[in-house]
Amino acid sequence: MLAAIVRRTALFATIWIVLSENSAESVAFGLPAVAGAVWMSLRLQSPAHGLRLWRAAALLPGFLAGSLAGGLDVARRAFSLRPVLRPGWVVHSTSLLPGGRVALGGELSLMPGTLAAGCEGDRLLVHVLDCQAGFEGGIGTQEKRLARVSEGP
C-alpha cells in the first residue's frame, strides 16, 4: 500500500510539475490536486491490481502505429466521394478486470475501425465501422498486449 502511494504520488506530482512549468506559485494548487488524484486512483484502482508503467511504454510503438492506421482509414472514408461504411457490432468475451476493460475499450476506440460501448457482463460490445474489413481481428491481440501491463509475474 505504502509503495503504491509513493509511486502514484511521484507520478501525479511529475504530471503537475510538467503542466505548471514548475512555477512556485502553483504549488498551493498542485498539492491538493496531487493528493486528490492519489486518493481517487487508490479508490478506483486498488494497489493489488496496479499498473506497470514501464510495461505500458513497451506498447507505445504498436499503439502509435495503430492510431496512425485508424486515423488514416477514417480520414480516407470521410474524404471519399461516396463513403463506404458497413457498420455492425461484434461481441468480445474478455477476462480482463473492470479497469482493464475500460483501458481496452479506450484503446480500441483509437485503433482502426473499432469502437467500444462498454460491457454486458464479461462481454465487451464493440462497434465496427466496416464489417468486411476484418477490423475485429485486432481485438484479441490488443487484449493480450494490455493484460501484460497489469501487475503480475
Binding site: 496512425l68 486515423g71 488514416l72 480520414a75 476506440s109 483509437l110
Partner: peptide, 14 residues
C-alpha cells in the same frame, strides 16, 4: 457510432 469513429480517431491523429 460511425460519427464517433471519425471524431476520436481523426482528431487524435490531428
Amino acid at each position: 457510432f460511425s460519427r464517433l469513429h471519425a471524431l476520436t480517431k481523426a482528431d487524435n491523429l490531428g
